Simulated assay, not measured.
Amino acid sequence: MYDKIVDILCAIKEDQPELRHSLSPSTDLNNDIGLDSLQMIQFMLKVEEQLNVAIDYDQFDYEHLESIEAFISFLKSCQSQAQPQYEDVQQ
Rank of each mutant, 00 (worst) to 15 (best):
Q59G: 09
Y57S: 00
F60L: 15
L75K: 04
Q42E: 15
K76E: 15
N52D: 11
F60R: 02
F74Y: 08
L65T: 14
M40N: 08
S73P: 03
E49P: 00
L65C: 12
Q59D: 12
Q39P: 12
M44C: 02
V47G: 01
I41E: 13
K46P: 00
L38D: 13
S67G: 07
C78V: 05
Q81C: 08
Q81V: 13
D36A: 10
E48Y: 01
L51F: 02
Q79V: 06
L38T: 15
E69I: 04
F43E: 00
F60D: 00
D36C: 12
E66W: 05
L45K: 02
Y57D: 00
Q79H: 08
Q81Y: 04
F60A: 05
D61A: 14
F43A: 07
V47N: 03
E69Y: 00
I41K: 12
D36G: 13
S77H: 12
L75A: 09
E63I: 13
C78Q: 06
Q59P: 00
E63S: 14
S73F: 09
V53Q: 03
H64A: 09
L65M: 14
L51W: 01
Y62H: 09
E63H: 08
Y57L: 07
E63P: 05
D61M: 10
E66Y: 01
S77L: 14
D56R: 09
K76I: 10
E49C: 07
M40Y: 04
L38K: 13
E48M: 03
I41V: 15
Q59Y: 08
I55V: 10
D36Q: 11
D58N: 10
E66Q: 10
E66A: 04
V47Q: 05
L38S: 13
L45R: 01
V53S: 05
L65N: 06
M40Q: 12
Y57V: 09
M44T: 06
H64G: 04
D36M: 10
V53T: 10
Q50R: 04
F43N: 06
Q79C: 12
F71L: 08
F74V: 04
Q59V: 08
S80K: 15
S80I: 13
I41Y: 13
F74M: 06
F43Q: 08
S37K: 12
A54T: 04
C78E: 06
Y57N: 03
N52S: 12
I72Q: 04
F60Q: 04
S73K: 13
D61R: 14
F71M: 02
K76M: 13
Q79M: 11
I41Q: 14
S77R: 15
N52T: 09
L51G: 02
S37G: 13
E63Y: 07
D58L: 10
F60I: 07
S80A: 12
Q50Y: 09
F43P: 02
L75H: 07
Q59N: 12
L75Y: 08
L51P: 08
V47E: 01
D56H: 08
E66G: 04
M44E: 01
C78K: 01
